[in-house]
Write a protein that binds this DNA or RNA. Structure first.
Length: 190
DNA sequence: GTAGTGATTTTCT
DNA sequence: GAAAATCACTACA
């Protein structure tokens, strides 16, 4: 079932690990994409220098200060988009970066086309924040979507049980790297 | 398998 | 003007 507002309206560090194993679903004009989340990172606000929201709200980050359960999509390194899910309550910044969805469940052929049409193993399609957005066709048009009311983009719990997951420092940042706010799930049993 | 580096644009200082 | 929550390609082992 679709995750409700209450799931997101909790501390970011609590929401982040619970997103592991959930399904990311996106109905675009291209078709339907589904993937299972297996890697996330938590980004706070005032207490996290690595967060975009650290210096207070700006036009880019205002959605992180808004209601929980919204999407936050930003452009980075002149090349790629990244998808976040806003947590915490209204007025308090916090978001969870969706780093990876493995395996791609639905729309795999369209994902491969979006990723350049080159022959790649499935796990190469969406095992990174930039790759996942490219595969799903997510851009800033998907910024600020309410995941609890939208029929376009949302998260779903299909009853997956997470037995164990790893906790490590976050990737690609240069500040606050001593915090273990990256959560990695080994994925479904093979 | 690992290591090094260029691409390219949004955003804030 | 500088830095950035990344990726792909190349070289080499």
């Amino acid at each position: 079932m679709k995750l409700a507002r209450a799931f997101y309206q909790r501390p970011t560090l609590q929401v982040a690990p619970e997103l592991l194993g959930k399904f990311l679903i996106f109905h675009s004009h291209q078709g339907t994409f589904v993937g299972q989340i297996n890697e996330v990172e938590a980004y706070l606000g005032q207490d996290d220098p690595a967060s975009h929201a650290f210096r207070g709200p700006t036009p880019r980050t205002e959605v992180m200060f808004g209601e929980a359960g919204f999407s936050y999509v930003y452009f980075i390194y002149g090349m790629q988009y990244s998808l976040n899910i806003v947590a915490e309550t209204k007025g308090k910044a916090g978001a969870v970066l969706i780093r990876s969805v493995i395996p791609p469940i639905e729309g795999v052929e369209i994902m491969r086309q979006n990723r350049g049409g080159k022959p790649r193993p499935d796990r190469e399609l969406s095992n990174g924040p930039g790759k996942l957005c490219q595969a799903f066709g997510i851009t800033r048009e998907q910024n600020g979507i309410d995941l609890t009311t939208s029929g376009e983009l949302y998260l779903e719990d299909r009853g997956t049980r997470i037995l164990t997951h790893q906790v490590t420092p976050r990737i690609g940042i240069s500040q606050n790297t001593d915090k273990l706010w990256r959560y990695v799930w080994q994925g479904p049993e093979k």
